[in-house]
Amino acid sequence: MSSVTKALDLLCHFSAARAEIGLSQLCRIAKRDKATTYRHLQALEISGFIEQNPSTKQYRLGPAVLQLAQTREATVPRKASTEEPLLDLAETTGETAHVTVLSGTKVYGLASCDSPRHGTRAIIDIDTFPLHATASGLCALAFGPEDLMDTALADLTTFTQTTATTPDTLKEAVQAIRQTGFGRAMRTYEVEIEGLSAPLFDQTGQYAGAVSVASVATRFTPELERTIKEHLMIASRDISHNWGGTIPSEIEGLWANSITARHALESTS
């Protein structure tokens, strides 16, 4: 990893929940020594990517990040075109809906819409989604570039008792997703949350991200699962279309088989 990459990677540790970070804390989070981290912070500060709060002396994202974000959205529009499909998805499922995008080997949060029906609901408060533990990340492993698996296997952090923490369990989970067309994370990142996702494609025809629904586990029933999957398909088609892409026929086939199989299982139970 180059010095530039290491410096820019520090930006990923900032989030809405952790808007300001001190030098010592950042060293612990990034698992780097103080001298190197300080040198990288100085370089980022000179470039405007971060700034130091004069009151707290902690670091926060700088104006250059905002400028780049605005330029990105203006030239490669993504967020605005997800708003209506996400609102429809949240309203029809009653759960929190969100969209992630794949950039390089990382999955970033793009937009979210909270459940309009329930006071107790999933809260999307992370900016980078673990590949091995979230529905969005697992969806990327199943339908994104093959080299993502190597990245995921390099960091199998345990979040809950059901998190995939071995190569075999992770590969089994990904293979199951490839058979249904839906990413699935059953209490693997948070013990009280179950998630489902569907892949998104852009004008390149390649995997671009995922649209997901995060449900409070105590509300997650077979009926709700079916409803979520049906509306995830609609949202995935709409957002992919807005991004200039289409859903590959093989994934449409997986969805159809998955919904039919679930319906047949419910009818005989």
Rank of each mutant, 00 (worst) to 15 (best):
R187D: 07
S136Y: 06
D88C: 06
P116A: 06
L102D: 03
P199H: 11
K57R: 14
V101E: 10
G205H: 15
E266T: 10
T82I: 07
V4D: 14
H231A: 03
G94K: 04
H132T: 03
T93Q: 04
L141S: 05
R117I: 06
S2I: 11
S136P: 04
L156S: 05
T260F: 14
A214M: 09
L102E: 09
R226E: 14
V216L: 09
L131D: 06
P130S: 02
I21P: 00
T5M: 14
A43Y: 09
Q161P: 00
D9P: 01
Q161I: 04
A264V: 09
T37C: 05
Q25M: 07
D155G: 07
M233H: 10
S212V: 06
T160K: 00
H98L: 11
A69E: 15
L148S: 02
R60Q: 15
T151M: 02
H13L: 11
Q179W: 11
Y189Q: 01
T162H: 08
R237Y: 11
V65R: 10
D114S: 09
L11R: 12
C113G: 01
E45P: 04
E83M: 07
L66Q: 15
W255I: 03
R121C: 01
E95W: 01
G48M: 06
K57I: 07
S212M: 06
Y59I: 08
I46C: 10
I50K: 04
L156G: 04
A198R: 01
A122S: 09
P222I: 09
I193M: 05
Y59T: 08
A256Q: 15
A198H: 09
Y189N: 00
D33F: 05
E146H: 12
S236V: 07
T218L: 10
H118S: 03
R121D: 01
S47V: 10
A111R: 02
R121A: 01
D114A: 08
T93C: 03
A64T: 14
L148C: 05
G62F: 11
R219P: 05
T71D: 13
T75Y: 15
V191S: 12
S269W: 12
T162F: 11
L61Y: 15
I126K: 00
I251C: 07
F159P: 00
E194S: 03
Q175Y: 13
H132K: 02
V4K: 13
K106D: 12
T204Y: 15
G94P: 04
S215R: 03
T5R: 14
P248M: 12
T246G: 12
T158H: 11
M149Y: 12
V107N: 03
G253V: 13
A17V: 10
V4E: 13
E83P: 00
E83T: 09
L196V: 06
H231Y: 13
V99F: 04
S197T: 07
A7K: 07
T134S: 08
A97T: 04
V191F: 14
E266F: 13
N257P: 02
L232H: 07
I234W: 01
L232A: 08
A235D: 06
S24P: 01
H13W: 14
R39T: 08
